[in-house]
Design a protein around this nucleic acid. Structure first.
Length: 420
RNA sequence: GGGGGAAUGUCCCGAGCGGCAAAGGGGGCGGACUGUAAAUCCGCUGGCUUAGCCUUCGCAGGUUCGAGUCCUGCUUCCCCCA
């Protein structure tokens, strides 16, 4: 982003200081709107999974700050656009989701917003919308006549995302063009119906958003604005929140609070400051203090990051419980009974169960084959003792004084086995 | 419409004289070292009831003791000519 701009509004001040801004179509324009309390911004969320993951968290936080600084946030469910599918950045087209799946996903995704936004009828109350509201009733011919005539294919061809595909001889399907048009139309429709004047999103959405601004101008809407956040990667270049174990989901039924806390606790040193700004509400001077910590001391900052970020999502109580579980597990080496737990029938345990199967059941390894391999590499432990023999059995003798068996993969992943 | 190429381990990229569970990367997981970090080094990276068995190289057939590899047809993608 341009550097010498000095925002007047609280909104842009916060976003600038905390590093949320990658590109903006008109900083002065957005600033003026924000200052006059006249800023209504939306962000679209695809309904492709039952839960959003940390990749969407930057966007959610932007909506949060907008509301805190006097603007009106509008999370938009892509109930309509998900039926088409956004092919940007994909090398093969996404498989089509059934309407039932999309509905179910929508319900799952919605939950999370109430934790970050206040909904209601007031001026700065958040508004939850779904583009199925206007997209599903769209008539193709009408759409082409009223909206389609405003799209300049010439202009769309010159967009980076499109140009890149063409230059690389990569497939660019017709559906992708349509997705762009629908998203642009969303912006205009939101402007008409709800007075939305700003669309935010990840940096990969820039082209789509600007197309919307252009369409708004052609269709006689008041000036619309675009603001994107940087694409989040870790300091070592990996995509945020993607691990082999799975995405870092926001919904508790997809990822336990403890694992969510652990995700933040394991932040790389170089990311701590950035993440504190983006994913906590801590004041800036506190963040400056924390990110200045050196060496092992930075672990204190990581714990604060983890607890703060987890508290935003799951509440302070659960966040602190997760922090305490981690403290017992890692700092005391004790068995914290609050670790993720699976049940086993007491009779079954009495009879003895094979160690391979039980690690699979605990979800620590994907197959007995992987369990075997991990045992060879010294990666599986029972009550903190590495398993030497893959044919070993567990029985009541393995119960700790807490009445559980602690199963571990590596040094960080633990599951308790509890007889019932 | 004609001609030429491509599809490989269900994360990706990619080698593969008829003997192949299939080279090599990346990514991931584990071990060592650390600070639950990074970097580095080492191991692993189809499934199972594991001295063995089963399933994998776009799809369907065929040749062969034996096919990722050869033949035929099909599908999809790319390039060149029209």
């Amino acid at each position: 982003m341009s550097t010498d701009f000095k925002p007047q509004s609280d909104f842009l001040n916060v976003l600038t200081q905390r590093g949320y801004i990658h590109q903006c179509s008109d900083l002065e324009g957005v600033d003026a709107k924000a200052k006059s309390g006249d800023l209504t911004a939306y962000i679209g969320f695809d309904c492709t999974a039952r839960s959003l993951h940390v990749g969407s968290l930057v966007q959610i936080m932007m909506l949060h700050w907008l509301q805190q600084t006097g603007g009106k946030p509008v999370p938009l469910m892509g109930g309509g656009t998900t039926r088409v599918g956004d092919p940007s950045g994909k090398d093969e087209s996404r498989k089509m989701l059934s309407l039932d799946d999309i509905e179910a996903n929508k319900l799952g995704i919605k939950q999370v917003f109430s934790k970050f936004l206040t909904f209601g009828e007031g001026k700065t109350d958040a508004l939850m919308l779904d583009n199925a509201e206007w997209l599903t009733t769209l008539n193709y011919i009408d759409f082409l006549r009223d909206v389609g005539k405003h799209f300049s294919v010439n202009r769309m061809m010159s967009m980076d995302s499109v140009k890149m595909r063409l230059e690389r001889d990569q497939e660019l399907s017709f559906i992708e063009f349509n997705y762009m048009c629908l998203q642009a139309y969303d912006f205009v429709e939101l402007s008409r119906r709800y007075g939305v004047n700003l669309q935010m999103g990840g940096s990969d959405q820039w082209g789509n958003i600007v197309t919307g601004i252009d369409l708004g101008r052609r269709m006689g809407r008041p000036q619309l604005y675009a603001l994107t956040s940087p694409l989040l990667t870790t300091a070592s270049g990996a995509k945020m929140g993607k691990t082999a174990a799975g995405a870092i989901w926001l919904n508790e039924d997809m990822l336990s609070v403890y694992d969510y806390w652990q995700f933040w606790r394991n932040t790389e040193d170089a990311d701590v400051g950035r993440f504190l700004r983006l994913f906590t509400l801590l004041p800036m001077d506190e963040i400056h203090r924390l990110e200045a910590l050196q060496g092992a001391e930075i672990n204190e900052a990581k714990k604060i990051l983890a607890t703060q970020a987890t508290a935003l999502m799951h509440g302070t109580e659960k966040a602190e419980a997760a922090a305490e579980t981690a403290r017992k597990t890692f700092e005391e080496g004790a068995v914290a009974t609050s670790l993720p737990t699976i049940d086993i029938a007491a009779d079954e345990l009495r009879a003895g169960v094979g160690v391979l199967g039980i690690f699979v059941k605990a979800g620590l390894v994907a197959s007995t084959g992987e369990a075997r391999r991990q045992i060879k590499g010294g990666g599986l432990r029972v009550n903190d003792v590495a398993i030497a023999d893959e044919r070993a059995n567990l029985n009541e003798a393995n119960l700790t004084s807490e009445g559980v068996v602690k199963l571990s993969l590596g040094k960080k992943k633990h599951v308790l086995l509890k007889p019932v």
